[in-house]
Simulated scan of single mutants.
Amino acid sequence: MLTGRQKRFLRKEAHELNPIFQVGKGGVNPNMVNQIAEALEARELIKVSVLQNCEVPKEEVAELLSERSGSELIQVIGRTIILYKESSKNKQIKLP
């Protein structure tokens, strides 16, 4: 569990990032979760965009992705989800 200070730090770090995944009409599927887990291992911090044609509410998508990928949900802002998971092999981000 991250502290408020750590989440603020990660939100600041994520500001410059572009979303690398999009959740559309199909919603969250196992293949997408696997790819997000791999991206989190490589990058630690990612953004996911929820398209307007997604039938699942964005908050539910955020919870599903966070839960299934084993990551920490940092923020849902608009239709963008920020996820963080500390890498076991390639640690890049030093939390305060």
Rank of each mutant, 00 (worst) to 15 (best):
M1V: 11
L2F: 06
L2S: 04
L2H: 07
T3K: 14
G4K: 13
F9N: 00
L10C: 06
K12D: 14
K12V: 10
K12Y: 13
E16K: 12
L17H: 10
P19H: 01
P19F: 02
P19Y: 02
F21M: 06
F21W: 06
Q22K: 11
V23H: 03
V23N: 01
G24T: 02
G24H: 06
G24P: 06
G26C: 03
G27W: 10
N31D: 15
Q35K: 13
Q35A: 14
I36E: 02
A37E: 12
E38P: 05
E38K: 14
A39R: 07
A42I: 11
R43V: 03
R43Q: 15
L45P: 06
S49W: 14
L51V: 07
L51D: 13
Q52D: 14
Q52S: 12
Q52I: 03
N53C: 08
N53F: 12
N53D: 15
N53S: 12
E55R: 15
E55C: 09
E59H: 06
V61T: 00
A62F: 00
L64P: 00
L65R: 00
E67C: 05
R68G: 05
S69P: 11
G70L: 10
S71M: 02
E72F: 10
L73F: 03
L73C: 03
Q75H: 10
V76G: 03
V76Q: 03
G78Q: 00
G78K: 00
R79P: 04
T80Y: 06
I81G: 04
I81R: 05
L83Y: 09
K85F: 07
E86H: 08
S87C: 11
N90P: 01
K91D: 04
K91N: 08
Q92E: 13
I93C: 02
